[in-house]
Amino acid sequence: MKRQIPLLITFIVGIVMVVQYFIPRQPFAGLFDTFNQWFLIIAVFALILGLMNLVRLHVQKLRRMKGGWGYSIILLCGLVGTIFTGALWGIGTGSPFNYVFVNIQQPMGATMFALLAFFIASASFRAFRARNLDATLLLVAAVLVMIGRVTIGALIWNKLPHIAEWIMSYPNMAGQRAIMIGIALGTVSYSLRVILGIERTYLGGE
């Protein structure tokens, strides 16, 4: 029963979700949103599990004085501090919670995102080394697209932006669409395996 009930729920929900796409009338029309709301409710309760796990692991780390325990203090202080400021003074504009979010959380996220530029540079450097014919083609295409998409490209040769656009719109787009067709079919096939209960590893057992 432990296995049969989740499989039955998966089958019913899977079929209903497929059917609702083709039937616009009620009760099918609102089912997609309803199921999504149910999922959100479950996810919110599950967040408590995640929080408990996070606190337990870091308290454990502090007790045992494991390497990097100082970071655990910062994490726990940040967690407790944010919860309390939010609970006591609300989360509106001008509140301490909002101050923490705008001045600490957002800049830290932006910093991580900004690192992407450097990672792209290092990854490109490796990818664009002309080791063989494929890599050389990649290098040539990348250089043409990069130069063609900046202002100086048109100054060097006025046809460069058109070449860059052609590479992006035709060979690149064709490749992207081929991958997307494969993904769509893979998704259908995998979904069918899950709905029919052929694929059940995600339930925690074969």
């Binding site: 997307m180 494969g182 993904i183 079919l185 893979g186 096939s189 069918l192 052929i198 694929e199």
Partner: peptide
């Protein structure tokens, strides 16, 4: 893409999954 979704079938060698 599709290779990623095929991985479980490929690894399990389960005929039913390979059929899909």
């Amino acid at each position: 893409g599709e290779e990623f979704f095929a991985a479980s079938a490929y690894l399990s060698r389960d005929p039913l999954q390979l059929g899909s």
